[in-house]
Structures are given as structure tokens and as C-alpha cells.
Design a protein around this nucleic acid. Structure first.
Lengths: 248, 248
DNA sequence: CGCCTAATTGATAGGTATCAACGCTTGTGG
DNA sequence: CCACAAGCGTTGATACCTATCAATTAGGCG
């Protein structure tokens, strides 16, 4: 059962995620208009769904606190992860075209989202061009995100895919004010593998390989990046050499 | 050098692609407003680019006649195909978020596109809610297209990927009033392979395999679908059996 | 008609999946 | 506080799929 907070909960002005969210670049007047249509937040516990594929589409969401995975069901029972979503990132945009959600969104940890009723957002966009442009940018950004991932999946080895994933996650954490070197992975090896098109055993092997090369330090879900340059080189396709003798 | 046609060229009302284009579901008054901002069409010869990655973003486009591929450059010189686009389908939406085009669009045959100046479209969307919603649906549709392809790339074998590709292309041709069984491929094996994450030799082998199984008939770029059910079964993951003895 | 590119087919190598076993972490209850 | 169970993660051996390299054939354009 979702928890609804009254509209009196703190608005976008106070939000830590604002610089990376829909509210980015809005002036105070426009921000107030946006705040007015975001009437509630919702809490989603770890493992629970925010919405499921084929649910009627009414709202889009912005992750406020926590993180989510999105899944597409896949003929039989197999679930394909299509993305991990951090604070400030939008959820539900894929539901606009069919009036039903096309994927399922599940919280990776106890999380809250801002509920944005889509018809109200459309009204606001007709009145406030800055808001309109921001929505367009957000949707365009999702399209670009998709084609990047497409490229990664179509053209890169498992090693490169994982390097891309780690560097990308690191950058997204950095923008949010977290350390780019200390990753606290909220998802399992299997979920990572699903997104990246490989099996969980392969994910694990690549982690071990990177650790042997002193690129990262892996401690289960805690990953420490030791060598950004090295990871970037792998990301760009420079094949890693065998490990040189380590200094003491 | 692009050819520009005057605004007097036939508008969306007469367009064969209208049912699958931005103009879908618009009333006559709204259609006239859209026609008014589409001031020109542009001809792009086979192999030429409509726009290139990093070009300043001013317009989106709708394919009027012909077809395009979109590419992302890939670190070094490698080009990754991210989509094939038929009449009525949008081009350039990925440029909104950065004010620059994120990919390169190249005509697969002599083609024409409708030029839609994006600032004018945004203005129109603020006035005409049906137009606004249509734009949102179109962008959402692109997001869904991306995540579907992502799923195909992440989870399917080469055989299934090609089956998905053929069935998808067939459906898109059918909607446009062409025979769903007679595919005239405008792209090379290599370009198909790039989109689908496999090498051109593998594409070729899969074509031969499908032909042996009497699912399709391949004659270079002319492909005839003989057994939609069989292709769909492969698409859904039912492993194809060895060929039964053929009649006569 | 001939050149050049695209496509097909074969042989082999390499990367990742699969199957299997073990170890670690986490949470629960005595 | 410790014992135990269950799930997650790691590692190894092997098989399979697809890439790679190579040779040949077909097709398209000047």
C-alpha cells in the first residue's frame, strides 16, 4: 500500500536532486507552478513495484530518494532489466504512447518518488515554455540514453560493457554529490548482467579481472574505483595487458 | 546541396504517410496549423546525410518518401547503426536535449523529409493540446522502441534477433500499405548486423538458415517471407527443428 | 563488358554460456 | 552470542555460439 504525503511536504526548491531533475533551470515562479502540480510523494519499499507493465498510465515520476530498476517481461517469464534509475531521474515516460505502462519499475532500496500527474504537466507545459522545453529535453535525454545502451550492447565485449557501466554509474553519482570512487551497488550481479546482456557468472568474472588489474576493489556490493584512466581505456576498447608486477 | 521546396508543396492532408506520422489523429484545423509550420521538404540522395552528429539542432524531421539509417560514432572510426527509419517516422528527436544532433542520419535511398522547425513546433504545442500530446506520444514511442531493441540485443541469439528484425520490418511495411511478405531491404548485411549486434557473415548465415527452413526466400536484398508463424516462433524463442524432408 | 563492392560459404579461434561446486554474507531464532 | 539456513557471489571445467580469416561467387555501376 503506497504512502501518500500531503502537498505540504517540502517542494522542489529544497530538493537535493533538483540540479539533475525536471526542476533544473526553472526560475522561482516556474518552480512554484511545478510544485503546485506535484501534490504528493510516494514511498516504495525495497522490492516493491511503483507500477507494473500494462497498468493504466496516469503519472510520471521522478525518483526523490533511493533507486529503481525497470523491467520488461519477455515472452515467457524472463525479465529483462532496461535501466537503473537514481534520484532526479524520470520514470514512466514510456507509458505516454500507449496510455499504459510498458515496463515495471521496482525499488532497489526503500525509496520515494515525486508523483507528477501527466495531464497536469501537459497543461503546465502549454503555459510555461521553460517547463515545456525541460520536458522535451528530459524525453530526448531518455532517447539518447537508450541509443547509447544499444550501442554498448551491440558492439562491445563483456569486459567493455562492465567498464562502461561502472564509469557511467560513477559519473551519475558524482553529479549527485557522492564520491565517484565509492560505488554502493544496489542491484545483484544477475540484474547488472541482464541490463548488460551477460550472465551473472560473467559479471562476477569481470569484476575479479578488474580487481586483479588493480582497476577496482570489489567487496561484494561495495566497489571502489582505483584507476579511472584504466577503466576509461577499457571502455574505449584499448585491450588491457596482463598484470604488471605490483609494487609491494 | 539540399533541395528546398516552397511551402506550396502538398501538405499533410494528402500525405500517404499521415496515418503513421505526427499528423495522425489531428482534426482539419489542427492539421492546417501543422502544415503552416512545415514550410519545406528536403531531398536527400542515397548515401548523403540529412544531419550529422554534433550539428546544431534546429529542426526535427519526418521521413516523407524513402528511408534512413541513424548512426552513432563509436570512439574510433567505428559506426554503430541505431535504427532504420521509414516514411512517417521521426528523425532528430535525440538532438533536443543537447541542442546538437547526437547521431548522423543517412538516406538509404533517394528520399525526402518534411522539415519541422522545432521552436515553431513547441509554440504550436503550447496552443494546440492535441498536437502537444501527439509530440509526447511520438517521443515516448521512440523511448519504447529503444528499450525493445535493448531487450533484443541483451537477451536473444543471433537467430532470434534476425527473426525479430524481419517481423518488425514486415509489420511496419504492412501498416504503410505495402505487402508484409515482400521485403526490399535497403541496407547492407553489414548495416543490419550493426543494428542487431552481429557480424555481416552471421547475418548472411542466418538468412541462409531461414531459407533452408522454408521460412523465407532470399534473393540478395529481396526477401520474401513464406512462413510468418515459423518466424514468430523463432522470435519467441522456440528453437527451430532440423529441416523436415521437403515436398518435391 | 569489366571492375569493384557486396554477399555467401567454409574452417578455425575465441569469448561467453552453461553446469557444477564451494564460500561468503545476511538475517533469524535459540 | 552463537548456530544455522538461505540466498548471493565466486570460481572452475566444458560446450556452444559467434567472430575472425579466407576464398569464392554474385551483383551493380560506370
Amino acid at each position: 500500500m503506497p504512502t501518500l504525503k500531503p502537498a505540504s511536504s517540502p517542494g522542489c526548491g529544497d530538493c537535493r536532486a533538483r540540479p539533475v531533475c525536471l526542476a533544473r533551470d526553472l526560475g522561482p515562479r516556474e518552480l512554484a507552478r511545478l510544485d503546485a502540480i506535484i501534490q504528493a510523494r510516494r514511498t516504495v519499499k525495497r522490492g516493491e513495484s511503483l507500477y507494473r507493465a500494462n497498468d493504466p498510465f496516469d503519472n510520471i515520476y521522478a525518483v526523490h530518494v533511493g533507486s529503481f530498476k525497470t523491467l520488461i517481461a519477455h515472452g515467457d517469464g524472463v525479465e529483462q532489466v532496461t535501466g537503473f534509475h537514481l534520484s532526479g531521474e524520470p520514470l514512466g515516460l514510456d507509458g505516454i504512447c500507449t496510455e499504459r505502462h510498458n515496463c515495471t519499475a521496482i525499488a532497489l532500496e526503500d525509496s520515494t518518488v515525486c508523483i507528477i500527474p501527466f495531464p497536469l504537466l501537459e497543461s503546465l507545459c502549454r503555459e510555461v515554455s521553460a517547463m515545456q522545453h525541460q520536458v522535451h529535453r528530459m524525453m530526448s535525454g531518455e532517447i539518447v540514453r537508450g541509443s547509447r545502451l544499444m550501442m554498448v550492447l551491440a558492439a562491445m565485449s563483456a569486459e567493455r560493457r562492465l567498464a562502461v557501466f561502472l564509469v557511467n554509474l560513477s559519473e551519475r553519482l558524482k553529479v549527485r554529490g557522492y564520491s565517484p570512487a565509492e560505488l554502493s551497488l544496489r542491484m545483484s550481479r544477475e540484474e547488472m548482467g541482464s541490463l548488460l546482456g551477460m550472465k551473472l557468472e560473467t559479471v562476477s568474472r569481470m569484476f575479479s579481472k578488474f580487481q586483479q588489474q588493480r582497476l577496482i576493489n570489489v567487496q561484494g556490493k561495495q566497489v571502489q574505483i582505483l584507476d579511472f584512466g584504466g577503466l576509461s581505456r577499457i571502455e574505449r576498447g584499448c585491450t588491457s595487458l596482463p598484470i604488471a608486477a605490483a609494487t609491494g
